[in-house]
Each structure stands twice: as structure tokens, then as C-alpha cells.
Simulated assay, not measured.
Amino acid sequence: MSKGNEGAFIYADESGHSGKEIFKEESPIYYQGAVISVGEIESKVAPIIQRYCTENGLERLHGYELGEEGVNSLCLELLEALDGTQWKFHYTILQKGI
């Protein structure tokens, strides 16, 4: 690994369709997933993500726009790309406003 690619990397994203209105009552659950890797993985996954964006006419990927089948295909490709890489997935669920 080159010097700039060493260390732990965290790639996190939220779900729950709350956008900037994170405390919106219509979105009572906050979900966050994170891939934690030893070394960067962006060079492995970025081309796959870009291809899905291009094929679906999207600027950014959102699961609801890909649908269940699209998300499943994407995940399988990402898992294959990460084969041989040290990584873990962390998932957090928070119930808002109790």
C-alpha cells in the first residue's frame, strides 16, 4: 500500500429518507451503515458505483431509485470487489424523539 492508502477508512451513509430534516416526525427511525476498512477501498468500488449511476441516469445512488433487484445486484458486485480486503460493516438504528 502506498503511504496515502494506509490506516483505517470509514465510509458511512444514512438512510431513512429524512435528508436535511433529520428530526422530521414522518421519519421516526434513523439508520446509519458504515463500511470500515483497512486501507482505502474507493478505488475498488467507485467504478462500480459510477457505472450504476450512469446506467440509471443518477447523479448519486439511492436504494429506493434502484429498487430491490438493483440494490441486490449492486451489493453482490461490491462484495465481490472487496474480496481479499479487510473490512467490516457496522449498522446503527436509532429511534428518534421518544
Rank of each mutant, 00 (worst) to 15 (best):
M1Y: 07
M1T: 04
S2Y: 07
S2A: 10
K3D: 13
G4Y: 07
N5E: 14
Y11T: 07
A12Q: 06
A12S: 14
D13L: 05
E14N: 08
E14V: 10
H17F: 00
H17P: 01
S18V: 00
S18P: 02
S18I: 00
G19F: 09
G19T: 03
E21R: 13
K24A: 08
E26S: 15
S27Y: 09
P28W: 01
P28L: 08
I29K: 05
I29Y: 13
I29G: 00
Y30H: 09
Y30R: 06
Q32E: 15
Q32Y: 05
Q32L: 13
G33C: 03
G33V: 13
A34C: 14
A34E: 12
S37I: 06
S37E: 12
I41G: 03
I41R: 08
S43V: 04
K44G: 00
A46W: 03
P47H: 12
I48E: 05
Q50M: 12
R51F: 01
Y52R: 09
C53M: 08
C53E: 15
N56T: 03
N56M: 00
G57R: 10
L58Q: 04
L58Y: 12
E59D: 15
R60I: 06
L61W: 07
H62S: 06
G63W: 11
Y64E: 11
E65G: 01
E65P: 01
E68C: 01
E69F: 00
E69M: 04
G70P: 00
N72K: 15
C75F: 11
L76V: 02
L78T: 05
L78P: 10
L79F: 14
E80C: 10
A81L: 06
L82Q: 07
L82P: 13
G84L: 01
G84D: 12
G84F: 06
T85N: 13
Q86R: 13
Q86W: 07
Q86P: 00
H90S: 13
Y91W: 03
T92R: 14
I93P: 02
L94C: 07
K96N: 12
K96Y: 03
K96I: 12
G97V: 00
